[in-house]
Computed example of a mutant assay.
Amino acid sequence: MAEEKQHYMTEEGKHKLEEELDQLKTVKRKEVVERIKIARDFGDLSENSEYDAAKDEQAFVESRIQQLEQMIRNAVIIEDDDSHPDVVNIGKTVTFQELPDGDEETYTIVGSAEADPFEGKISNDSPIAKSLMGKRIGNQVTVVTPGGEMNVKIVNVQ
């Protein structure tokens, strides 16, 4: 059997996944089963769009439950490593400036399960994070993105 992918996350991120899983198992799953029961009463299942929609939602919910269980089972909690406070790593917040005179941007590098660019959280698998990992404050780095290359200088790591 192939080795399952490890999912890096903070303790908070794991807790959020556990809450979502609990919600899906205890609430959403029951709601969908009830929708299926009601839709069956509408008659011929072959032409019943309510039934089809409920079955599709059931498939989505069950798939998401399996995905969350796998992510939680293979969670690797990111520990706060203070031994190298100026080195970019998972769990750290990094501020960099686009060179030569761009604005500063700040992101927290998290595992893919927690990534939310709109909240300033980028995946450790993203091109930006991959380029910055292991670098220190003051380093200049070339980041290769789908939109092209950009040169940045790391100005802060927390």
Rank of each mutant, 00 (worst) to 15 (best):
M1Y: 00
M1E: 01
A2R: 08
A2W: 04
E4G: 01
K5G: 01
Y8W: 15
M9P: 08
E12W: 11
G13L: 10
K14P: 02
K14M: 14
K14T: 02
H15S: 13
H15D: 13
H15M: 12
L17D: 03
L17H: 05
E18A: 06
E19Y: 06
E19Q: 11
E19T: 06
D22A: 12
Q23K: 10
L24T: 04
L24W: 04
T26L: 02
T26I: 01
V27S: 08
K28P: 00
K28G: 00
R29E: 10
K30D: 10
V32T: 05
V33I: 06
E34H: 11
K37L: 06
K37Q: 12
I38H: 04
I38T: 13
A39K: 11
R40A: 01
F42K: 15
G43A: 10
D44W: 08
L45Q: 14
S46D: 15
N48T: 06
N48M: 12
S49P: 10
S49D: 15
A53F: 11
A54H: 09
K55C: 10
K55F: 04
E57G: 04
Q58C: 00
F60M: 11
F60L: 11
E62G: 01
R64T: 02
R64D: 07
I65W: 09
I65G: 03
E69V: 00
E69Y: 05
Q70V: 01
Q70G: 07
I72E: 05
I72G: 05
A75N: 05
V76M: 03
V76K: 14
E79I: 11
D81P: 04
S83M: 07
H84A: 15
D86A: 12
V88C: 14
V88P: 11
I90K: 13
G91N: 11
K92Q: 08
T93R: 06
V94L: 05
T95M: 04
F96W: 05
Q97G: 01
E98T: 12
L99P: 00
G102L: 00
D103T: 02
E104P: 00
Y107L: 01
Y107W: 08
G111M: 04
A115S: 12
D116T: 01
P117T: 03
P117Y: 05
F118S: 13
E119D: 10
K121M: 09
N124M: 12
S126C: 04
S126P: 07
S126Y: 06
P127F: 08
I128H: 03
A129V: 00
K130T: 12
S131W: 02
M133D: 07
G134L: 08
K135V: 01
G138C: 09
Q140H: 11
V141F: 13
V143M: 08
V144G: 00
G147K: 13
G147V: 02
G148C: 07
G148V: 03
E149R: 09
M150R: 14
M150A: 02
N151M: 08
V152F: 06
V152N: 02
K153S: 06
I154V: 07
I154E: 08
I154W: 09
V155I: 15
N156E: 15
Q158T: 15
Q158W: 03
